[in-house]
C-alpha cells in the first residue's frame, strides 16, 4: 500500500477535499426560485392591502401551500443548477430548515417594516414593506442563504 510518500498522500487528500468543497459550493436554490418568491411577496403585500383580512389570510395560506407543493423538491438545495446534482451526503438534510427559517425571519422583517412605515404615516405601508423585502429576496436570496448555511453549519 505504501506506494507513495506521506506528503504525496496528503497532497492527494487535499485535492480530493478541494473537489468535494467545490461541489458543496453548488448547494443552493435556483435563481428563478428567489425571483418567484420575490414576486409572490409583492403580490401578497398588494393583496394584503387591497383585500379584507380573511381573503388576504387565505391568499397567504395558499401561497404557503403552493410553495410547499411546487418548491419542496428544490428545498433540499441539490438542484441549484441543471449542470449537476449534489449528493445528499454533501448537501446534508438541514437546507430546507434553513430556507424555511430564513423565510419566516423575512416575514417578521416585513411585518416590522410595515408597522414602522404605518406608524410614520406612510400610505400602503404593507405594499412598501413587501416591495422592500422582495427586493432583498430577489437580489440577495442566494447570498443570504449562503451566510445562513455557514452559521447553521448546514
Amino acid at each position: 500500500m505504501d506506494k507513495i510518500a506521506p506528503e504525496q498522500a496528503r497532497t492527494a487528500l487535499d485535492a480530493a477535499d478541494r473537489a468535494r468543497r467545490q461541489v458543496a459550493e453548488e448547494v443552493g436554490l435556483p435563481r428563478g426560485y428567489w425571483w418567484a418568491m420575490a414576486a409572490g411577496w409583492v403580490l401578497l403585500g398588494v393583496l394584503g392591502n387591497v383585500l379584507p383580512p380573511w381573503p388576504a389570510g387565505v391568499a397567504t395560506v395558499g401561497f404557503g401551500v403552493g410553495h410547499g407543493v411546487f418548491a419542496s423538491r428544490l428545498l433540499d438545495g441539490r438542484r441549484r443548477t441543471d449542470r449537476l446534482r449534489v449528493s445528499t451526503a454533501v448537501a446534508g438534510h438541514r437546507i430546507p430548515l434553513v430556507v424555511v427559517g430564513m423565510l419566516l425571519g423575512l416575514i417578521g422583517v416585513t411585518v416590522l417594516v410595515a408597522l414602522a412605515l404605518d406608524a410614520d404615516g406612510a400610505g400602503h405601508a404593507g405594499i412598501w414593506a413587501a416591495v422592500l423585502t422582495a427586493t432583498v429576496v430577489g437580489f440577495g436570496g442566494p447570498e443570504m442563504l449562503r451566510v445562513l448555511r455557514r452559521w447553521a453549519r448546514a
Binding site: 485535492a15 473537489a19 441539490r78 449542470r83
Partner: peptide
C-alpha cells in the same frame, strides 16, 4: 485499498467531484 487508476491527480479530482454528486454534466 490504494487504487493506481484513480490516483493520478486529474483523475482523482474528477472522481472526487463525481463522488460528491449524483451526476455532473460534461461542461461542468
Amino acid at each position: 485499498r490504494f487504487d493506481e487508476l484513480i490516483h493520478p491527480s486529474t483523475r482523482l479530482s474528477l472522481v472526487a467531484t463525481l463522488a460528491a454528486a449524483d451526476w455532473a454534466e460534461f461542461a461542468f
